[in-house]
Nucleic acid binder design. Structure first.
Lengths: 193, 193
DNA sequence: CCAATAAGTCAACATGGCTGACATAACGTC
DNA sequence: GACGTTATGTCAGCCATGTTGACTTATTGG
């Protein structure tokens, strides 16, 4: 695969005829970082666009997708936890959550310990849609990783985690742990957000 | 650095007490891909949030940032080209572009060949703001790459490029090339989008 | 009984997408 | 020089999804 994004001196020379000069090497090449900034924007667009077009068929948007995703990943999630993950207001969440519940994609059950809580679960219908969305995004990521060498997998995850805002890192770490750990979030003692 | 995101069998065992079983290894672990999906969301949020808070001080949003960014990267950009990069309607662009021009962050000049064209440039003021935004994002990316091994740089760019939607790839490739190539977009013969 | 908590709801507003329709100026051609 | 095309700008209105503030309801626990 042609390495489109790299800026090795030889390629720089070959592609543009401009000789590399010392100023380009201020730590990491500014040009490379600029390329990353831009790529991140386009990559995120690529990441979401296929799922968006499926969601559109259901009259849903990306906000609905997020709810489906995190409920899928954390069955029995409390509304308050979801709010904390998404960092939006309950009014914003309510709008999309209500639709998802009304249309039977998400099921709410009162908590058995504390009946004020509404634990969120996917219905079969909700699981079907979520699976479809997940598969399309997983496929794209898998395809992207496939072209890269071994270790790309872990390196990419580490890069992405490092990009997460500091204040979000503990939460994201807990989410990843609980999900790959196996014990559902509602039954863990130490993961109650 | 603790590798938070990896799912090596040993860690899986240590973290959750759940033994790894064969079904986890369907090509790439589904759990790892799910983690990537989630990480991409949180990472993009981390990527944008600092810039967003600066923009807010100016009464601008992410839409303004995109315009500033691409004009900075492609001085003399035509409105039509910008529309094609952003994939939004001219009405949506007009709203933010008008603000940026009215407030003196962006300068429009009629093209010298075709005077219908409005070539876009940053004013000194616009360049100052854009630099501030770029620096904060570049710093975050640099920080994220710093923790990873050598080669993370190129691998990350390649991963991100691979995530770009197929229909966008030629355009993104051209953008990267023109910018690292050196010849400004308005003077190149073969890059006229 | 009562204060605190989890959740839901109503109203209003901002941003940034969208569509459709139309205006203006400049270009190029017949 | 008239005319069709192109590049851009603009008006009006709609939608999705974020925000704030205020208030209700059900439930918990002291």
């Amino acid at each position: 695969m042609a390495d489109i994004t790299s800026e090795s001196p030889s390629e720089k020379l070959a592609a543009s005829g401009r000789p590399p000069h010392a100023a380009d090497d201020d730590r990491r090449s500014t040009s490379d970082l600029l390329a990353c900034i831009e790529l991140f924007y386009f990559a995120y667009r690529g990441f979401t666009c296929e799922a968006d077009s499926i969601l559109e068929q259901y009259g849903f948007g990306r906000a609905h997708h997020r709810v489906l995703h995190f409920v899928n990943r954390n069955p029995g999630l409390k509304v308050a936890e979801l709010l904390d993950i998404l960092r939006i207001t309950k009014q914003s969440l309510a709008r999309v959550l209500k639709q998802l519940v009304d249309e039977g994609f998400i099921i709410q059950k009162a908590g058995h310990e504390d009946r004020r809580e509404r634990r969120l679960y996917l219905s079969a219908k909700g699981a079907r849609l979520t699976d479809k969305l997940t598969q399309i995004q997983a496929k794209r990521i898998e395809g992207a990783l496939a072209g890269l060498g071994s270790g790309a997998d872990a390196m990419t995850r580490n890069f992405l985690f490092a990009m997460v805002a500091e204040k979000d890192k503990p939460r994201v770490e807990a989410l990843l742990r609980s999900q790959r750990g196996g014990s559902p979030i509602e039954e863990s003692e130490d993961c109650n957000l």
